[in-house]
Design a protein around this nucleic acid. Structure first.
Lengths: 225, 225
DNA sequence: AAGGAGTGAATGTACGTTCACTCATCATGA
DNA sequence: TCATGATGAGTGAACGTACATTCACTCCTT
């Protein structure tokens, strides 16, 4: 803001102090959330006592209540946090892939899967604990999931318009792709021995692309996986 | 057993009484399990109090402890129950489809999805509450899931050997198919407005088959969906 | 010395589990 | 045919515990 200058007046120094406080607060919040995701990944939301949570974060129980209204608030925040990561990181990653809808879709799926990989506990959490939330929280989650699906859906629509892709149900395909990416977290116990993230992504792309691409374009893209 | 005759001796009548008791017990057990799945579908395992469970089943709290060792036992029983349904019903349904591996696979997927449909609450339960169980329970579940996947995997292997299907990673494809079927329960809030079970199954088969089938056989089977 | 970050023992409550009890059923002997 | 006693299914109030939440307090930082 222009109010921040080299010779701080009284108003400005209040702003700065407040900004510093806000930064500190939000990094604390992040720390507490990370601890929560870790413990919930280990034991589940209901099994997690506030004491265990405090121990993991190396703070006191009471501090959590300065940052979150209740235990359930922590859960909602953790879930919303991961879903916002999907929503916010997908479009940029796809933009980097250029103009080709197929390459954009591949980049989107790859990025989506790598976010899953980096947040396996949190992804599993969204499946495990959604129903624990109240109706408002659940609606929030559904809304975020639909928002997240938008970039991939529109790129499929574009691909069909360009004659690169077959006529498919774009909405179904996108949700399928998201579920297959979630599978990396949900069925990690099954896939992890045989796959790395990269090879999992490649295998799923080889699974999904033949349906999507018109026959004479297929090989061209399959070789790029 | 040959001991059961028209002129019941003492031993026989004991057997009969015991058999009657066993039948009654197992139907009670089923009733209690059904009530449990209903309540857990509504509120989740942890939110479900034993009192709420007893109310739903219209019995007393104490009775549950005659049939299950603990609350967690009920959860395990409910999950194992649905997974055994998958395991036991899949192969017979596929056998009915004749010798063609592709038709067998289609029949298997269709049956799998319809079991999902009939047990949506229970399927969601397997995702939500698996981690609630102890290690032994979780291992039991993983084992059942792998067993369930066997018939579809072997039919894909057969299809590849017959030259009907492309060379694919059979294990990955089967788990994908199972996840997509689970999607009918997990993402029912999203799909139910636009799909019936039948159209969902048809759409997913149209999604999966192009990858699986060799090009010159594809149309032949797609028209049969 | 003021303000806010951080603490953790105390509180109230919700709930899983138990167990002493009731009641229905039914084989047996009179 | 009827009384009798044994068996075990079914009950639900009472118990103990675990744990989310609070709040009066301390201790830095500026």
């Amino acid at each position: 803001m222009t109010a921040v200058t080299r010779s701080p007046g009284p108003t400005t120094s209040v702003d700065v102090a407040e900004a510093v406080r806000a930064v500190r607060a939000s990094s604390r919040r992040r720390q507490l959330l990370d601890a929560a995701v870790t413990v919930m990944g280990r034991t589940g939301f209901h099994q997690m006592s506030m004491q265990a949570l405090a121990d993991e974060a190396q703070v006191s129980v009471g501090l959590f209540y300065k940052y979150f209204g209740s235990k359930e608030d922590i859960l909602l925040a953790a879930i919303v946090d991961i879903l916002e990561a999907f929503r916010d990181q997908l479009q940029p990653a796809m933009d980097l892939a250029g103009d080709d809808p197929v390459l954009q879709l591949m980049a989107g799926f790859r990025r989506y899967a790598s976010i899953v990989d980096e947040n396996r506990d949190a992804v599993v959490l969204t499946y495990r604990e959604s129903r624990t939330l109240d109706a408002a929280g659940r609606d929030r989650i559904k809304e975020l999931e639909v928002e997240t699906s938008a970039p991939m859906r529109s790129v499929i629509t574009a691909g069909m318009a360009d004659g690169l892709m077959n006529e498919v149900d774009a909405d179904l395909v996108v949700f399928d792709l998201m579920m297959l990416a979630h599978g990396w977290a949900l069925k990690h116990w099954h896939f992890a021995p045989g796959y790395e993230l990269d090879s999992y992504v490649a295998a799923q792309l080889r699974f999904a692309l033949p349906t999507l691409l018109v026959p004479d374009k297929l090989d061209e893209y399959l070789t790029q996986i």
